[in-house]
Design a protein around this nucleic acid. Structure first.
Lengths: 117, 117
DNA sequence: CGTCTCTATAAATGGCTGTCGATCTGGAAC
DNA sequence: GTTCCAGATCGACAGCCATTTATAGAGACG
């Protein structure tokens, strides 16, 4: 799950030696880094992180109207944050009549979580 | 490790019932959300995520001069990203003579990683 | 039909961010 | 000393972001 870079030989500098030629590794995972950074970016806001937290604990049970008063924000702002999470693939939503129920997509954070561990 | 919100009773709506009164939980962890979101934000850039990855694998072995050519970026930009990571508490640096060696602070991502799992 | 409720979108805005070139600092080597 | 080198900082600029108010859309209900 490591994110390798666009380097090549994977030599190791002798311990005492100073900083010299770039020690370079093959570019295996620039796109992986882009994927995971996109997830991290979506989680990089306290509101969205709390949204994900509450949705993980109450998947499919919470409608937007219940989420709004949890934050000192207007309804459109909460809707905006939910949209960011949706576009990041972290949450999904299901509309039932007048209400929209959100839930965390279970495997969305798997790759990122594994890398982080 | 859950991030609770500024809610109170922790009632659960009957399953069939529609979206009604806000179901509210005690505000236990707004600051925790702020902390973790700051970490996520710092990781929310592919360059920084790759920096953390390479530093995790080569802690204290890599100087900035070796990091720069890994990215299609100028030295000041890489230095800027390292600063962001430093201010987020994710990496530290030690200056040895002319070179600066960076390393990932081991416990920095622990809380976030645990929440994510 | 009209009206009310819940949610999403639009437009505007102030602030933050990623990037660069140029410059500064401090140590090494001559 | 002077010169060179690694790294950090500065100033500027373009693009993105979080927020708000206002509005639109879609379904329930009378």
């Amino acid at each position: 799950m490591a994110v390798d870079l666009e380097l090549t030989p994977k030599t190791k500098r002798p311990a005492g030696d100073a900083c010299g030629e770039p020690v370079v590794y093959p570019d295996v995972a620039r796109d992986q880094a882009v994927r995971m950074a996109a997830l991290a970016k979506a989680l990089g806001d306290p509101v969205r992180l709390q949204l994900v937290d509450v949705l993980r604990k109450h998947a499919g049970e919470v409608c937007v109207r219940e989420l709004v008063p949890l934050f000192d924000l207007s309804q459109p702002t909460v809707s905006h944050h939910l949209k960011v999470l949706r576009e990041a693939g972290i949450v999904g939503s299901e509309r039932q009549g007048l209400w929209a129920y959100y839930f965390v997509i279970s495997d969305a954070l798997k790759e990122f979580s594994a890398w982080l561990s």
